[in-house]
């Protein structure tokens, strides 16, 4: 399809977004305003992530998209197809083969490396938004490092639920400076955010980009007597048996039957193949 410029956006727009990305990388956790474009999909479907991906992709890149950890859900499939069509890049479902990974709500289970870029879709980039509705005020709070209010939210959690009940979009402090919304990833993924890969966050509707350079220190906020806990369902995966991955609860019938499976489908599939291979090898050994 040659009617589109590479990766849909025009070069000027991509330059503008790249400038925002570079600024974001220079000030980790700081929300950089950018002129978000109308994309051929509704706001809330990942337009921020798509624009960041479009500005990041090169023809040599291998692209992977996950939505809630899965490669095969509507959002992931349509964004992958979008870039197949407009950029002609190779796509993959395997985490370690991808160079750019766009994600919604998860960080892949497999450890990422320095050659990879993780692009997050962000609905609401402002961690203080639900506590302080005024944008002028939240900006001032960020610039003056007034983050007491964030702890008021955690205090309310404990007062109401007996523990910090925030389970996703758990606020973090970046390099001891900016408080950042890690996008709605489960708090299970928070400790992974100090990683070798570059992390870019795009919020299309809210017109903000922020970023974490490799190995940035990311600390989840907590109280001394109620420390942060990366929680997950207390089960192991029904399909691959993994007990260290984040699990989805799936209802399988109308009799109350439910199973827990890995939310990261690529991770689960690779473990299942490995298990089958091992079983096959064992079988061969016995028969030989």
């Amino acid at each position: 399809m040659n009617d589109y410029n590479f990766a849909y956006l025009d070069e000027q727009t991509k330059r503008m977004i790249r400038r925002a990305i570079l600024k974001g990388l220079a000030i980790p956790g700081y929300q950089v305003p950018f002129a978000s474009r109308e994309m051929p999909m509704p706001f809330g479907w990942g337009t921020g992530g798509v624009q960041v991906s479009a500005a990041t992709l090169t023809p040599e890149d291998v692209f992977k998209v996950i939505d809630q950890g899965a490669d095969d859900t509507t959002n992931a499939v349509s964004i992958r197809k979008f870039f197949q069509a407009t950029a002609g890049v190779d796509t993959t479902e395997e985490t370690d083969k991808a160079t750019v990974i766009q994600t919604r709500h998860r960080i892949p289970e497999a450890a990422l490396n320095e050659d990879q870029i993780l692009v997050y879709q962000v609905p609401i980039p402002e961690p203080l938004r639900f506590l302080e509705p005024r944008e002028t005020e939240t900006r001032k709070m960020h610039s003056l490092e007034e983050y007491g209010l964030m702890h008021v939210k955690l205090y309310e959690d404990i007062a109401r639920h007996g523990a910090i009940a925030t389970a996703y979009a758990y606020p973090v402090k970046v390099e001891g400076r900016y408080v950042m919304d890690p996008s709605p990833i489960p708090k299970f993924d928070n400790p992974k955010m100090t990683m070798p890969a570059i992390q870019l966050f795009g919020a299309g509707r809210e017109q903000r980009i922020y970023a974490l350079p490799p190995y940035t220190e990311v600390v989840s906020l907590d109280f001394e007597d109620y420390p942060f806990e990366a929680s997950k369902a207390d089960h192991s995966c029904e399909l691959c048996g993994a007990d260290d991955s984040y699990l989805d609860e799936v209802i399988v019938d109308d009799q109350g039957g439910r199973i827990f499976v890995c939310s990261d489908t690529a991770y689960c599939a690779s473990r299942q193949t490995a298990l089958q291979d091992a079983a096959a090898a064992q079988h061969e050994e016995i028969s030989a």
Binding site: G148, L149, H151, V152, Y155, I158, F223, E224, D225
Partner: peptide
Amino acid sequence: ERLMAVGARHY
């Protein structure tokens, strides 16, 4: 709130 704003971190 004011306590947390001046750095209290013990619930």
